[in-house]
Nucleic acid binder design. Sequence first.
DNA 1: GCAGGTACTGAGCAATGCTCAATGGGCGCG
DNA 2: CGCGCCCATTGAGCATTGCTCAGTACCTGC
Lengths: 210, 210
Amino acid sequence: MSADPVRTRVRLSAEDRRGQLIGIGLRLLVTRPIHELSVDEVAAEAGISRGLLFHYFPTKRDYYAAVVRAAGQRLLTHARLPGEGGPEERVRAVVEGFVGFVRRRRANYVALVRAGAGGDDLVLEVFEDIRATLADRVLEALGEPSPDPMVRLAVRGWLAMAEEMAIEARDETVSADGLVDFLVDGLGRLLAPLARHRSLGPGGRPHDRT
Amino acid sequence: MSADPVRTRVRLSAEDRRGQLIGIGLRLLVTRPIHELSVDEVAAEAGISRGLLFHYFPTKRDYYAAVVRAAGQRLLTHARLPGEGGPEERVRAVVEGFVGFVRRRRANYVALVRAGAGGDDLVLEVFEDIRATLADRVLEALGEPSPDPMVRLAVRGWLAMAEEMAIEARDETVSADGLVDFLVDGLGRLLAPLARHRSLGPGGRPHDRT
DNA sequence: GCAGGTACTGAGCAATGCTCAATGGGCGCG
DNA sequence: CGCGCCCATTGAGCATTGCTCAGTACCTGC
């Protein structure tokens, strides 16, 4: 850092500083897996001393967790559950948001996943929240706010599939639309043998709430 | 060092030492995510100096990769593709091996996955090999040694689903057999819209046949 | 029994996560 | 305007960790 000769100490509010640090984390997260991020690096990027980072985040893990949480929020924002519509329509909206986000920002998302799987329990917990939220949205779209465990398990599995395919898909192989079609259709096919009376698709909407 | 007063230096062949170190890695891997394993710890466990570990593995990453490769071999050994049988039968054998392995040794497997996702490119490569091998086996069982990219992508996604479900499934929710049934059946259902002429199991719609 | 190769050691270095006592800048209050 | 307090901020310092290297000791072949 030679470019900033007069590094006047900048004093920020606690809130602003936290935001800045998390922002830096989000940016650097793309570069490398999170556990290879050093405190020195983040501090240098922010133009502060190492010590200060520990003033805001008691531990490196806490910092990581905060960054991952922020990244997860971005994802969830892109995969909103619409308030109305038929089951298939609503599922499609969530899947479109999810797949679109992952494909547009593959690097970000892969980094996020790696962070989640990196083994830190704190981070893992945050990650689990994100997945559970996505599963809930899909289940709610299906009109099954409290499904039997097997259905929930299947949806979780299907989400893992969606994630893997969205990450791995190349444009030459499938268009984003094609992938969304496959996934929405696939969810219906997967759940069919589990469903007693309901199905995904035009017609099957037993009890939709709002 | 109180417990081993006469720590006579044990000199092993290069091969044996490597094996011992990898074995220790496999054992410790269950305890914690791999990147929290310190060289000191492994060396202490093996009763050797830190320096020696670097004699066998030029880098910590190389050591990790070797451990993960060994763990992956174990998995692949449990998910063998039988030489003969119908497509469904052969797929089922692979899935049974896979699900059984993951469920019996959840801790091991989760540790393995975390290691793979831990962000290290070397380890990631090893991990990718394992997944590709599994995908190949399934594809071969289906009689599609060189499928179009979308089918391969779908199988990869389905494998991710299998992994997630096997990890997450609790005995109270589904039996191992139930899960295998769901997965084998699900694969057929997923691939149906992609297949031009081929399908899993007798007839276009897999069904419980017994 | 000598020579050579190599398994092995241990001291030491740089980087990293984390602590803590001290500092100083901004803001409210007189 | 000035004073004092709070808290954002620093920077030195410690333990651990990944890694290097020069040297040692044990086994093998002649």
